[in-house]
Design a protein around this nucleic acid. Sequence first.
DNA 1: ATACCATGAACAG
DNA 2: TGTTCCTGGTATC
Length: 268
Amino acid sequence: MHDVPEGHTIHKIAKDHGKLLTGHEIRVSSPQGRFSGDAERVDGAVLERIEPHGKHLFYHWSTGDIGHVHLGLFGKYKVFRGEERPEPRGAVRMRLVGELATIDLAGPTACSIDDPSERKKILARLGPDPIKPRQRRQKMFDKIQKYKRGIGDLIMDQSVVAGVGNVYRAEALFVCGIHPLRPGVDCDEAELDALWVTITGMLRQGVKDGRIITVSRSELDLPKGARIRRGEATYTYKRDHCLRCGTEIELIDIANRTSYHCPTCQPR
DNA sequence: ATACCATGAACAG
DNA sequence: TGTTCCTGGTATC
């Protein structure tokens, strides 16, 4: 099994890597040689901040340049602490070497050094990120209520709300009892407010856990302190039967991605 | 050894 | 709407 990142992963990375790198001069290189922009532009600069938004990361450098990383389906970081600095393994797109750690990035969809206007452009096309404080949930509501497209399609659209992927889509709609094909225009404020609150809670919990657990322990019948295993951490996602009522989970293809829902708990 | 699949998203037409 | 790109674990021959 394989963890492809949703918003929670990105925020955790920003936090963890930020502790190791920010405030330090960083050697920046591209062992693979495919760093679009130019690693040299920021090589040796001080990393001032790693800013997450949805599934995107922005690296603020003391030169004024801004690094942009999007992991996509396959992107992965490897962290080596302290002095350990192994030969790059595989296609390392970006290597960051600081006093406290060496961090390698492989397989990202995007990795570039740009000027600040590029960050502005990207942020302008992203919806609010519920993990962050003071985000305007109304932006998400307005957008959803504008479209006939299904809510399951809409909440995975990063311009509607930033950070939700296929797992959180399935799980948030389940908890709110909303069918994924429910047209956006038919959703009322109360429903959308509940959805926002649910998504926010789930994503923030994911940052803490470092993984996606959307079930509440009380519904699992687990011994106290037992670890929630993969495969039992969700209500509908990748399950054969609904965790809550046992009904067979239905699969629908929404924009070429499998959507999971319980026809009993999420009636049309 | 090869095929296939995955939790993403840009792009062509 | 379909195609493409990036990786790596697992299934299949």
